[in-house]
Amino acid sequence: SSDNMSGETGDPALTRQRAYQKKAFEFISRALKIDEENSGQKQQAIDLYKKGIAELEKGIAVECRGHGEEYDRARKLREKMLTNLGMARDRLDLLETVLASCSDDT
């Protein structure tokens, strides 16, 4: 049925964007936790950052062209995901560089 109790458009694209965002948040917050604790499990953090980055990329790729508040919000969310994609990539590069230089020492 096409009933829409919430009053939203129910655009499946926006639902997908939300789902990717959620996964990205879960992966990257887990990566950040390990990274912040500085426990030496950097490889694990790297793997989680990579998974989170992949989800961010999928979320950013979702088209959110449309009119109305719901789409405005989706575009703002996309902007935020773009910012975090850049920052997460920077962090990942740094960790990989650090890890590579550590193994060179041995």
């Binding site: 965002q21 959620k22 948040f25 917050s29 969310l77 935020k80 975090n84 920052m87 962090r91």
Partner: peptide
């Protein structure tokens, strides 16, 4: 969703 992305930004910046 928006707040979750904000939190990631803050922690990455830190």
């Amino acid at each position: 969703a928006s707040e979750q992305q904000d939190e990631l930004s803050q922690r990455l910046a830190q």
